[in-house]
């Protein structure tokens, strides 16, 4: 039994080393932790916390904004204005290029017209376990941490690996090639959206056909107000569609995934947009731009060019 005396400590050390190796090395304080890291105290208090998850503040939004706000005093990703404040990629890159997610206060120097409201209020999501066109309350208040994991995740945009109780898989882009202003989306980037907006995850061929039964293993919530919905996770090629990413229309372009698939993010900005809606495009919620990237229905024309 003498071997137990050295085997046990060895196993403990081995376990610690293996756990340390699991820490993600995302940017800034969002990963790369060591067994004796001092980073925890940056945001947490063990005995004197002021908010959930032992946070130093009651508001997750304010905590994030202390680095990522308009002042960008601790990060180049200014999510208030939706800009990357420095030259993305170094060298001659553009200064103040738009962020991939849009902005929560302004976007492209204009006040936003719709946002994902992440100030910690209880929110309802469209199609969250209910039919399209209907909303259901999320399990908890919507915050930055609802979609992003501040401790890092398996992708550089630190998108959570579980959102609203649903496992989310978003493939990693090479860490060394990460870019916050140029889309480098894996084909499964849509998973981050459909964790909450599941009823809109229509993947059956032929968008204009009856797709109330998805047929692809995705949830069919039934009772939809419409059985017809635009498909995602598909190639942009349909009829005479132009490549929205390279050709575009009238100077406007839209991003696609790595395999040229259409994702939710092709038409929508997840943080917020300053697009404006007029007359027919206003819809039932006046002034709500539904997170669309372009004014009115510009997102339709970029591909379909009618």
């Amino acid at each position: 039994m003498r071997w137990i005396r050295w085997m046990v400590p060895l196993l403990v050390v081995g376990l610690l080393v293996s756990l340390a190796g699991m820490a993600y090395a995302n940017g800034g304080p969002h990963g790369g932790y060591t067994p004796t890291t001092d980073a925890c105290a940056g945001c947490h208090r063990a005995h004197t916390a002021q908010g959930p998850n032992l946070l130093t503040a009651a508001s997750t939004y304010e905590l994030c904004m202390s680095c990522h706000g308009a002042s960008a005093t601790g990060a180049d990703t200014n999510v208030a204005d939706g800009v990357y404040t420095d030259r993305q990629g170094g060298g001659e890159g553009t200064v103040n290029a738009p962020l991939l997610g849009g902005g929560f206060v302004n976007y492209q120097s204009a006040t936003v017209t719709s946002i994902h409201d992440v100030d910690g209020t209880q929110s309802a999501a469209w199609g969250f376990g209910v039919a399209r066109g209907s909303t259901a309350n999320l399990p908890g208040p919507l915050t930055c941490g609802s979609c992003h994991d501040p401790h890092g995740s398996n992708n550089y945009r630190i998108i959570r690996e579980e959102i609203a109780g649903t496992t989310v898989t978003v493939d990693q882009v090479d860490e060394s090639a990460k870019d916050y202003t140029v889309e480098q989306w894996p084909d499964n980037v849509t998973n981050a959206c459909v964790a909450c907006h599941g009823a809109y995850h229509v993947t059956r061929a032929n968008s204009g056909e009856d797709n109330s039964d998805d047929g692809s293993g995705n949830a069919d919530y039934g009772g939809d107000i419409s059985t017809y919905a635009h498909r995602v996770d598909m190639s942009y090629q349909y009829g005479s569609n132009a490549d929205p990413e390279t050709t575009g229309y009238g100077g406007y372009t839209l991003p696609l995934t790595a395999s040229k698939y259409v994702a939710c993010q092709t038409c929508h900005l997840p943080h917020g947009t300053a697009a404006t809606m007029t007359t027919l495009a206003t819809g039932p919620n006046t002034g709500d731009s539904a997170l669309l990237r372009l004014d009115n229905r510009g997102v339709c024309e970029v591909c379909h060019q009618k």
Partner: peptide, 9 residues
């Protein structure tokens, strides 16, 4: 400059 175009720190 408009409010959206400036960020005094």
């Amino acid at each position: 400059t408009t409010a959206a175009e400036r960020a005094p720190v």
